[in-house]
Amino acid sequence: MIKVGLTGWGDHPDLYTSSPKQKLQDYTSHFPVVELDASFYAIQPIKNTHKWLKETPDNFQFVVKAFQGITGHLRTESPFDSINEMFQIYRESIQPYKEHGKLSMVLVQFPPWFKCEKENVDYIMRVREELRDFEVAIEFRHQSWYAPDFKHQTVQFLREHQFHHTVCDEPQVGKGCVPLVPITTSNKVLFRLHGRNTYGWINPGNNVNWRDVRYLYDYNKEELTVIQKVCEQLHKQADEVVVLFNNNSGGHSAKNANTFKKMLGIEFEGLAPKQLDLFEGGI
């Protein structure tokens, strides 16, 4: 099974046919899975979780991003008294997704400065223990994890501890990015497409809108054809491939994902009964 979706549901104006309050419902008429990014910036209140669960079809899936305090991105003082408290509250916030059968996986995306070192391996083991009741995908952003001396060990480590591997398509511009490694470590794999904006990846700027620069990219048909081959290769290794387009800045991700879906020749069942032909013609 191959599922195609986007990161977030709030930045894709071409998908919306209803009021701004119904963006998620409109999104679910096009794609069967979404990455929940809000959980990275703050552990979400249970009321939000139940609202989103109620607004989505029975078989809809969420890839829930781990809170930035878990991944090491947090630059300000932690709002929690301890790491134990942070993990406990995070687990409580995502438990309803699992109970309703709508949790695809938890995405733990480590920062570019998270290198392949013993203390970091130990911390990943801490994450595994804290989230032992959940499916967890690991995404690295530092090349050292895939260096020739460590690549095999990285893959074996993920496989041994039942982590899903996150395969990334992104610019190759230094140690703060990872190569595309089409290898699975479990029966499910996450394939995140960040775009190939080399300049924006190196020089995202220092303003609050740096993500608008980094993820500004429109995949062309030739690039999507290569991605399709990678996706099919992954599908031979795993029962389920979850493909998420993260090139949101210029509004390209929804168009690219819809085109990619057509290239794969798949139609998703159980979508919300909304318009399905807004992108007729693709790219």
Rank of each mutant, 00 (worst) to 15 (best):
G10Y: 13
T17H: 14
I94D: 03
I89K: 15
A38I: 07
I183V: 15
Y41H: 13
C177T: 08
H100G: 01
K98R: 14
D277Q: 10
I202K: 12
C231S: 13
G10H: 14
T71W: 00
A66M: 11
P148A: 14
V243F: 07
K47Q: 10
P96S: 07
L190M: 12
G282F: 14
E222R: 13
F163I: 02
L180P: 01
V181D: 09
W145D: 00
L158S: 05
K47P: 01
I70K: 01
E130L: 04
T185M: 04
G282V: 14
V64P: 01
D81T: 13
V226Y: 14
V106G: 01
H194L: 05
A238S: 07
Y215H: 11
L190R: 03
T184M: 01
C231Y: 06
S104H: 08
N258K: 15
I138M: 03
V4Y: 05
P96E: 08
T28C: 09
R91H: 06
F80Q: 06
W201L: 03
K255H: 10
D218W: 10
L158A: 02
D37P: 07
Y90S: 06
L6P: 09
E119S: 11
V241I: 09
P111H: 09
I183F: 07
D122V: 10
F268W: 12
L107E: 00
S144V: 12
E92S: 09
Q172G: 01
Y219K: 11
C177W: 01
N48L: 12
T71L: 02
K118A: 03
W113K: 02
A147M: 02
N209C: 03
F279W: 06
P171D: 05
V226L: 11
V121I: 15
E35R: 12
E269P: 00
E170D: 07
V173Q: 01
N120W: 14
G270Y: 14
I94K: 04
Q143M: 04
E139W: 00
L234T: 07
L103R: 12
V241S: 05
I83F: 08
K262G: 07
G5R: 14
E77K: 15
W9M: 03
E139K: 00
F110M: 02
E55L: 10
L6M: 09
D133F: 13
R132D: 04
G174L: 06
G200V: 04
S144Y: 04
P182T: 09
H252G: 08
